[in-house]
Amino acid sequence: MRWGNGGEDDVSGAGAYTHMTLLSSTTEGMHNLFRLSSKASIEGQYFKPRMDRELLSTYGKGLIATTGCPSGEVQTRLRLGQYEEARQAAADYRDIFGAENFYAEIMDHGLGIERRVMGDVIRLAKDLGLPLVATNDLHYTHAHDATSHAALLCVQSGSTLDDPNRFKFDADEFYLKSAAQMRQLFSDHPEACDNTLLIAERCDVKFDESANYMPRFPVPEGRPRRPGWSRRSRPDCATATRTASRPRCRSAPTTRSASSSRWASPATSSSSPTSSTGARTTASAWGPGADPAPARWSPMR
């Protein structure tokens, strides 16, 4: 999953929204990831859900983070020639998640935007003692699926393959590469591939399938607790939540200085369909006996 992490100084040059990769390494981390999603949607919503350093610090336990894709804060600052600012941002996140839980991410899909910053990302990793991790975006399974994927993008955007201005990917490398292909691609940095496997082995999340994760809706005295009441109460609850959060959401500026910025965008760089189950999905993630507030919340994904 990719989540917003920047937002300072209009760092992206087009809206101040940057990306970060977050993974849950423990069950506690999984619940924290759900909390981050909910908080970003309820408290940080401004055109898009956003999260900031303070929020990441509060719910960062049990998470593994990386500098993300070229739209991450670190890489964006590197592209703008702001090495010291990029170094400081990476140091901030290292301190938030812990040196063993924050990785400098490198990827190579044959795009100039990635290759322009890779050298600086590696330099920054050495400066701060950050481990490297090699990644590859996955949008389809096989290399030959690139053409079909392009056609699906046309369906999604209402265009045709003959349209030169259609939404498209600038490379055909977004498929599931084998370990051998990844090690050949990053042959100069074998430790980056080793760390990809290490992260996968570290992620150990468990679900209690016997627990009742359904949201709890308060029932007025004298009314029976039945499914019909929950269906009637949910729209009112959602309306109350939107009304309560609107002033804070609307008052947020589009840009702020690095020292005063609070919010960032939890935008995603890959497909992340929004959940249609609303409050039920997020409430389920918190588990029994947790804060009853999640019954009101709507998840970002």
Score class of each variant (00 low, 15 high):
residue 81 G to K: 04
residue 128 L to P: 11
residue 209 E to Y: 13
residue 242 R to F: 13
residue 162 D to P: 12
residue 75 Q to S: 15
residue 66 T to H: 12
residue 53 R to I: 03
residue 186 F to G: 09
residue 206 K to T: 11
residue 101 N to M: 04
residue 258 A to I: 01
residue 207 F to P: 10
residue 74 V to W: 00
residue 94 R to H: 02
residue 76 T to M: 05
residue 101 N to P: 12
residue 119 G to W: 05
residue 205 V to E: 11
residue 26 T to C: 08
residue 126 K to C: 05
residue 285 A to R: 15
residue 25 S to R: 08
residue 201 E to T: 12
residue 31 H to S: 04
residue 57 S to I: 00
residue 223 R to L: 14
residue 18 T to W: 00
residue 159 S to Y: 08
residue 91 A to L: 08
residue 253 P to F: 08
residue 37 S to F: 12
residue 74 V to S: 02
residue 119 G to R: 10
residue 209 E to H: 12
residue 233 S to D: 02
residue 107 M to A: 03
residue 27 T to E: 04
residue 252 A to I: 09
residue 29 G to F: 00
residue 43 E to L: 14
residue 152 L to S: 13
residue 38 S to C: 03
residue 253 P to A: 04
residue 42 I to L: 13
residue 84 E to A: 07
residue 227 P to D: 03
residue 186 F to Y: 10
residue 84 E to F: 07
residue 7 G to F: 02
residue 299 P to C: 13
residue 182 M to A: 06
residue 59 Y to F: 08
residue 134 A to Q: 05
residue 277 T to A: 15
residue 116 R to S: 11
residue 118 M to F: 05
residue 112 G to N: 08
residue 16 A to Y: 09
residue 220 P to L: 04
residue 136 N to E: 07
residue 40 A to G: 15
residue 29 G to N: 01
residue 301 R to M: 14
residue 113 I to P: 09
residue 153 L to H: 08
residue 261 S to H: 11
residue 204 D to V: 15
residue 296 R to I: 03
residue 219 V to K: 01
residue 84 E to Q: 12
residue 13 G to N: 02
residue 194 D to H: 12
residue 154 C to M: 11
residue 31 H to Q: 10
residue 170 D to Y: 09
residue 223 R to D: 03
residue 249 C to Q: 15
residue 160 T to I: 10
residue 104 A to T: 09
residue 141 T to Y: 14
residue 285 A to P: 15
residue 62 G to W: 02
residue 116 R to T: 06
residue 255 T to K: 14
residue 90 A to Q: 05
residue 4 G to H: 00
residue 267 A to C: 10
residue 12 S to A: 13
residue 11 V to F: 05
residue 64 I to P: 12
residue 153 L to I: 12
residue 161 L to H: 01
residue 196 T to L: 15
residue 225 R to Q: 09
residue 4 G to N: 05
residue 184 Q to S: 14
residue 142 H to F: 03
residue 19 H to E: 13
residue 300 M to H: 02
residue 244 A to V: 15
residue 298 S to Q: 12
residue 187 S to Q: 12
